[in-house]
Amino acid sequence: MRQYFRDVWRGVFTVLIGMRETWVHVFRPPTTKQYPHERFQLPPGTRQQLFMNADDCIGCFKCARICPVNCIYIDTVKAKPTEDLGKASTGNPIRQHVVRFDIDMFKCCYCDDCTTVCPTECLYMTDKFEASVYERSNGIYHFSKYEPALAMKMLAEQAAEEAAAAAAKAAKAAAAPKKEPAAAAPAPH
């Protein structure tokens, strides 16, 4: 009985202590912010949406290879020996046309691995984070500076060239055994 009333008293007393603590908070400035109207200052180096500066990309595929979720899609066309594509701003020579550079922002896990391997620092994370879209396809960002028609044409040309080269090689390989059967045998490995 005694214990019961002691518990009741202590219950009331400790609740009063807690109410004093909460009462103090009434006079403190609020810690919340009304988000769309007030905004937080994001720190430097924050990791939000990816952006690629198409002028500096050399098409090295490093970002696509390291991406843990495979959200970067690149297609390149080798430059012809007569073409000079110049240099990236860091001095790396550009030897390929980057005809396609797509990033699926819905797949991206914002891990920042791709930007650390980029040799020309053309791929970086911006501080934009509000990018909700109504269609899933609008979340796939295309960064290449080539028009799609032109890009498709270039890729088709390259594929044709490669096919022609492969055919020539096959023809040569087919022709070779007649001349030098011993030399044409591939080294076993």
């Binding site: 198409a54 690149i74 297609d75 290449s144 028009e147 799609p148 498709m152 594929a159």
Partner: peptide, 13 residues
Amino acid sequence: FQFEKRLPVVNGN
């Protein structure tokens, strides 16, 4: 964005 149309896949990475 540079593209207004989708580019079909010719060879994936």
